[in-house]
Structure formats: C-alpha cells, structure tokens
Amino acid sequence: MSVIESLIPRQGLKVLVTAGANGIGLAIAQAFKEAGALVHVCDVDEAALMSLPKGITYTLGDVSNAKDIDRLFEDVKQLGGLDVVVNNAGIAGPTASVEEISEEEWTHTIDINLNGQYRIAHHSAVLLRESQGLMINLASVAGRLGFAYRTPYAASKWAVVGLTKSLACELGPDGVRVNAILPGIVRGPRIEKVIEDRAAKRGITYEAMEQENLAKISMRKMVEPTDIAAMALFLSAPGGSNISGQALSVCANVETL
C-alpha cells in the first residue's frame, strides 16, 4: 500500500455518528458517506434527520435518554456491525458564573456531554472489539484550557479526554483504537450563539467578542466543520492505524479561551 492509498478509508466501513444531522456531526456523516461508508446517525432534530442525504440511515434519539440509546442500537443492527463510532453529541451549556449556574443546568450539560458518551461507549464496545474498530470522541479545546463562565462545558470536555485515554488503555489489547478530536472555534450557528451569549455577559458587542476570540488563536481564524471531518477520516484510514489514546486539537492553535 502506498502512502497516498493509506490516507483513504477502506470502502464499506460501518459508521455511527451521534448528533449527525447538523453541524460537525453532519459534516462527518457526509464525509464518511462520500468515502463509501455505510452511515447511521442519531439526532434530536427530527426535521434535520428528514433532510439527510439519501443513503444515510437514522434514529431519532437523545443520548441523555437510556431508552433512546437502546432503540438506537437496535436500529444499528441493520449495518451488520460497527467499524467506527463517532461520539459527537453535545451541548454548549449555560454561559454564567458558577454561582449563577443551577444544579439542573450543570447536570443537564454533564448528562449529554459526558454521560451520553459513556452510554454510546457502553453499547458499542463489544461491536468495536469484534471489528477491531475505532471510537472517536468529540471533546473541545475547552478540554485542555480553562474557560471562564462555561464551567459545565469545560468540565465535561476535560472528562471526555480522560474517558478517551482510559478507554484506549482498556480496549487497546483487543485492537480497538480510541481518540478524541478537540475542535476549536468552528464556524456555524452554534458558535454564533456562544459568542452572542458571552458578549451579553461581558457587556460588549458581538463583533468585539468575535475579534477578541480570534485574537486568542495563533492563525487568527475559525476552523470549518469539514476540517473536523477530515481528521475523522484520517483516523479511520490505514494511515491512522497506530494512533490511539490521543487528544488531537483541530483549532488553528487556540492559545487561551
């Protein structure tokens, strides 16, 4: 196999992407489909699921609901196994000081961002052992940096990195690789809402908040959802076969948050 060939995932990979109907998840699902994979996604957005490209199967479900996860994995059986699991579901959580964040807000953020990844890992581990497959957990640069006024989000993403490294140790002897991708500021509606909320908290304009964020990035730019998808494809290709237990930032080098 040539080096160039090693950068291309093999045809027919069986792939599950959580929160795969919008944003980063959709970019990942589309990229795998274009690479010849069989792709199944879950999402809470029914309208977005109905608009998925032809050939991507789906389940309406919430990763914070154990019954929805049970139903998801019943649907996944139609793939005949799993080679790649992309644990992408997550929410931004509240933007507030710690004394203002309610226990309900804290728990809800952790339940989706961390417990949701546990639930998917819990159900998919046996399938990935059978295929000697790959799990990709979406964390964030907030999983390696402190993030004022976003403590539930940052805490959950640091925990995802710990989950990733621990699962890599646990599943590695069976040939399963586990990695985390840490996106930076990803262009799209979600970051626009985060910037808006943070600007309001700081009492400054949206434009000033956006420029302040960009000033903290070495390359002074946001990344695209397709940049995250490209990393997921590389990890799934033969060239990524010895990469495991890693927290891989795709962020144009975010220096601080």
Rank of each mutant, 00 (worst) to 15 (best):
S2P: 10
V3W: 10
V3M: 14
V3S: 11
V3A: 09
E5A: 15
I8M: 09
P9Q: 07
P9M: 10
G12T: 05
L13P: 09
L13E: 02
L16F: 05
T18L: 10
A19Y: 05
A21E: 06
I28F: 01
I28M: 13
I28A: 06
I28L: 08
A31V: 00
F32Y: 15
K33Q: 15
K33G: 08
A35W: 03
V41Y: 09
C42T: 15
D43C: 05
P53V: 04
G55W: 04
I56Y: 02
Y58Q: 01
L60F: 12
D62T: 08
D62W: 13
D62A: 13
V63W: 05
S64R: 12
N65D: 14
K67Q: 14
L72Y: 00
F73C: 09
F73Y: 15
D75T: 12
K77M: 13
L79A: 08
L79S: 03
G81S: 08
L82Y: 12
V86L: 01
N88C: 07
G90M: 02
P94R: 02
A96D: 13
S97N: 14
I101N: 12
I101E: 12
E105N: 14
I110H: 11
G116M: 08
H123C: 09
S124F: 04
L127Q: 13
R129G: 08
R129L: 07
I136M: 02
L138I: 13
S140R: 08
A142I: 05
A142G: 11
F147A: 14
R150V: 02
P152W: 06
Y153L: 06
Y153F: 09
A159I: 02
A159R: 06
V161L: 14
G162K: 01
L163T: 02
L163E: 04
L167V: 05
C169M: 11
G175M: 00
G175K: 04
G175Q: 03
V176K: 05
I181N: 03
P183C: 01
P183T: 03
R187H: 14
R190D: 11
R190I: 08
I191D: 11
I191C: 08
E192L: 01
K193E: 14
V194W: 07
I195C: 09
E196V: 02
R198D: 15
A199G: 11
A200H: 14
A200V: 03
K201I: 10
K201C: 06
M209F: 06
M209R: 12
E210Q: 14
E210R: 15
Q211I: 05
Q211K: 15
L214R: 08
L214P: 01
A215Q: 12
I217W: 04
I217F: 03
K221F: 01
M222Q: 15
E224W: 12
E224V: 04
P225T: 11
D227K: 04
D227G: 05
A229N: 04
A229R: 05
L233N: 03
G240P: 12
G240N: 00
A247H: 05
A247K: 02
V250R: 01
V250A: 03
C251M: 01
T256W: 10
